[in-house]
């Protein structure tokens, strides 16, 4: 099994490239869906202790919309498309042309939830298929599942496999955002890719990077 302590700068660069390629394709897909320009920041790749895993999304208790799927195949892992709940509500409101959508309210809102699930599915599919092409690994997403809840409560589920091996996760985080015509930041979303511990070796191997980076 690949040890996190052995991660080198070369490994991290390779994982950044994965975040770039995957989220880049997803951002294009979202941009086509919304008919708007979607920007993407430079991916961050960090070895994060579990207790700091939610820092990027505003803390453990921050309410978020999260679409989760497992990646099956040559390099299993977990994937999230996560937004602050207010942003997720606004994004789906735009898509459905319904400004009343609020995922934090107790209304059932089946239509909004189904739309959000589908958006997550399309974006994650775009992310993974480009990643699969780049690495020549067979990566298949499970059907997506949706939760609107505290960031830590939803992210911890994706850490279960990883937690059997240690208290750290490799997080490949890419932020995408929509900039409005007035230059105000509109929508901000995060792709989190959490490779299972054994998957790093498969990824590095298929990209021709050896254990020493």
């Amino acid at each position: 099994m690949f040890q996190y302590e052995h991660v080198t700068a070369g490994h991290l660069d390779m994982l950044k490239e994965i975040g770039n390629i995957g989220a880049g394709h997803a951002a294009t897909a979202l941009s086509e869906m919304l008919g708007k320009t979607i920007d993407m920041n430079v991916p961050s790749v960090r070895v994060v202790p579990f207790n700091h895993i939610c820092d990027a999304v505003g803390g453990d208790e921050e309410p978020v919309t999260a679409v989760f799927l497992r990646i099956e195949g040559d390099a299993p892992g977990s994937m999230y498309f996560m937004m602050p709940a207010a942003e997720g509500s606004r994004l789906i409101g735009q898509l459905l042309n319904d400004s009343g959508i609020d995922f934090l309210s107790n209304e059932p809102n089946a239509m909004g939830r189904s739309a959000l699930n589908e958006v997550g599915n399309i974006l994650a599919g775009a992310y993974l298929s480009s990643l699969s092409d780049f690495t020549a690994l067979n990566l298949k997403p499970t059907p997506p599942a949706l939760a609107v809840d505290m960031a830590m409560a939803v992210l911890s589920f994706g850490l279960i496999e990883i937690s059997k091996a240690g208290d750290y996760a490799i997080v490949i985080d890419t932020e995408i955002s929509e900039t409005g015509s007035d230059n105000a930041l509109r929508t901000k979303g995060h792709f989190f890719l959490l490779p299972d511990p054994d998957s790093l070796e498969a990824v590095f191997h298929s990209l021709g990077v050896n254990e020493n980076g």
Binding site: F50, N51, I53, C54, D60, E61, D149, M150, A151, M152, A153, V154, L155, S156, F157, L159, I160, S163, D167
Partner: peptide, 23 residues
């Protein structure tokens, strides 16, 4: 108390853990 963590508290302290999902 963080995820995968434990601690103790006695009066006048309180003890808290946040964001329990399947945990």
């Amino acid at each position: 108390v963080g995820m995968a963590d434990l601690n103790t508290a006695k009066v006048p302290q309180t003890i808290r853990t946040s964001g329990l999902g399947s945990c």
